[in-house]
Write a protein that binds this DNA or RNA. Structure first.
Lengths: 184, 184
DNA sequence: ACACAAATAGACCGTTTGGTCTAGAAGGAG
DNA sequence: CTCCTTCTAGACCAAACGGTCTATTTGTGT
């Protein structure tokens, strides 16, 4: 099925920003990847590249939430869900050519001090953490511990992805859940 | 004291890359920050921006190694050193205007698939981890545990910094060492 | 004082950037 | 059919990009 133009643009932008960051990708490249002319971009995204970046970040966020749900929904306890999440992430890392990063931090880390970028990345990261927290509570953790564990998980996944990227090797990601499981 | 031109260039580049990433900063900006003309840049760094980026990453790495040593050398045990390191990082985060990132990942995360960038970031990250590992062993951890703990610390610090950045708040960093201390 | 390398200085170049603007195609409502 | 809005199409632009090149100044050994 063929996506509508705005979605095609957001998806292509997300993929390219993951590879080389917000400032590292030109509009022309995104346009040709999405097979859309410049007129369409500025019709659907009034503020051009920056609006497109926000849409791309939201697109990637939805994908991440889906991965979280896929890992935790069939799990019998928090530790299992967490372990599955890290293994799914490692697999994703390999599929993506061992080179891509999180598009959300790819936008956050680069964009000039654009306050909208910062606010959006905060929102998205918090959404990921509270989704993990919900799963944790559903699996029997009390609210405080679920929150702590979810934050810890986020932080380790984010940092672990960077290390995997630098090493070009997803094995770090697979070894991390054991560290997080202490006390469960 | 006034630094030599190559050092001044590397330092200015590191600071600017921390703010907006490799692709986000133009040569002209680095040049005017370092008060050096273009001729000097290409005299000292034959391959221009990319060579400068490597020098900037090494400069920042040395700074990070110093912070690690400052935190662990006076510590009486691993947990204390770790806690101090996170508090020092939080302080640094606040001083830097709650907006800067790690220049090493700022180069890694953006640069076009430059293999030299990847290799260098891997080297630098590994150097940080093994420095923490050495301190851990000196403070009584056995080699295997020291290695695991050091990797865990790195990953949490890296991810925690990103979260602090998104939130514009260093408090996450201060709360993280408690999570890492489990089992010590 | 001289010679020679090291370093500074910045004009200049082709390319690419994000963004604007006008023209026309597509498609539904009357 | 006509009318009108939505969307596509891409030529065009000033500004900024990284990089090259030639002069000139600075520093040092003799």
């Amino acid at each position: 099925m063929k996506l509508a133009t705005p979605d095609r643009l957001a998806q292509s932008a997300a993929r390219l920003f993951q590879e080389r960051g917000y400032e590292g990708v030109g509009l022309s490249e995104i346009l040709s990847a999405a097979k859309a002319p410049k007129g369409s971009l500025y019709h659907h995204f009034r503020n051009g590249k920056s609006d497109l970046a926000l849409a791309a970040a939201h697109f990637a966020s939805r994908e991440m939430l889906r991965i979280i749900d896929d890992a935790f929904t069939p799990a019998e306890n928090y530790k299992d869900g967490m372990t599955t999440l890290f293994h799914k992430s490692a697999k994703l890392f390999d599929i993506m050519g061992k080179w891509n990063g999180c598009p959300v931090s790819g936008i956050l880390l680069n964009g000039s001090p654009n306050p909208m970028f910062r606010k959006t990345s905060e929102m998205i990261f918090n959404a990921w953490i509270s989704r993990v927290k919900e799963h944790g509570q559903r699996l029997g953790l009390d609210p405080d511990e679920a929150d702590t564990r979810a934050t810890h998980l986020f932080v380790v996944l984010q940092g672990g992805w960077d290390l995997a990227r630098a090493r070009g090797d997803s094995n770090v990601l697979r070894r991390l859940p054991d560290l997080l499981a202490q006390g469960l």
